[in-house]
Structures are given as C-alpha cells and as structure tokens.
C-alpha cells in the first residue's frame, strides 16, 4: 500500500480495510466465558431477591385514595363546619397539632385541610419511606446489596 497524492475516499477506505483485515480484531481471554458464567451462576445462586413491601398497584390505590379524599374535602364539603363524623374520626387519629391553626386563616378548604397535622405527618412518613427506598436503589446500583432489612418499596 503506497501513499498517493489526492487519494480518493474509496481507495483510502480500501487500504484501511485491508490493513484492519490483516491485523485483525482483539480476542477475549480464553477463559472469559467461563468466568462470566461463574459470576452469573453465583448471582443466581445467592437467592437474595428484593420484593416490594408495597406493590406498584398498592401505591396507585393509596395515591388514588389520597386524591379522592382531597377532592372530596374541596368539592363535597366546602363548608368547614359540615365535616362528616367519619372524616372527623379519621383526622382525630392524630390529635396533636404541629401548627397552631389559629395563626393561619385559610379561606380555601383545601389549604385548611393540607395544614392539618395528620396530613403533614403523612407527607413526612411518605418522604421518609421514599428516602429509605432511594438508599436501597443507590446501593443496588453500585453492585453492593446492603442487607439492612430486605425491604423494598418499588
């Protein structure tokens, strides 16, 4: 193969192709597949499988229920004084107050509902659970499965 002035692209491609054919591609080490399959078999045999505590379907149901409660509080009970006894019992579960609601005057029923302590507590709980899940996802992505509790939420 010789250098040519103003060599065409086709000729250049042909010369390079011949050179690459001659040198050839690399070869993986002889025991590559054996090591790979050992590694795969070890992973299969470990038997540690993460299963979600709450399935995706369950999360959807929870989300829909929360959305339904919010919408109901806004549209069905626009008057704060007309809250049904059932909802009063539910909200009474968390009777302590994070915020002094007298400090805030909410014209909108939705905002008033969201300021309730049980709602805030629920938000905190969901945030804590999602943060826990994030820790698991991080550790899984680095290839190190931290056996903290075997709990996974998604």
């Amino acid at each position: 193969m010789k250098h040519q002035e103003n060599i065409s692209e086709t000729e250049m491609d042909k010369q390079l192709d011949s050179l690459f054919s001659s040198v050839g591609a690399e070869h993986a080490p002889a025991d590559f597949t054996r090591h790979l399959m050992q590694r795969i078999n070890q992973e299969e045999a470990s038997g540690f499988v993460y299963k979600p505590v709450i399935s995706k379907v369950a999360w959807m149901v929870i989300g829909l229920a929360v959305a339904a409660i919010l919408l109901a509080s806004v549209f069905l009970f626009p008057d704060a004084g007309s809250t049904p006894a059932v909802i009063q019992k539910l909200t009474g579960i968390f009777s302590f107050q994070f915020l002094d609601s007298s400090l805030f005057h909410f014209e909108n029923r939705l905002l008033q509902f969201l300021s309730e302590s049980h709602v805030l507590l629920s938000v905190l709980a969901v945030t804590a659970v999602m943060g826990w899940q994030y820790l698991f996802m991080c550790s899984r992505n680095t290839g190190k499965r931290k056996r903290i509790s075997g709990m996974m939420l998604f």
């Binding site: 010789k2 050179l19 054919s21 001659s22």
Partner: peptide
Amino acid sequence: YDKLLRLSGEMPSLKGENK
C-alpha cells in the same frame, strides 16, 4: 490515514483479503 502516514511514511504492506 494521515496518522498512519505520519507514523510510517507510507501505509504498511499488507496481506490478507478485503472482506
């Protein structure tokens, strides 16, 4: 191509088929 020329002065002689 230019790098190979610079390294060798000319393209190295070859054997082998163009597949």
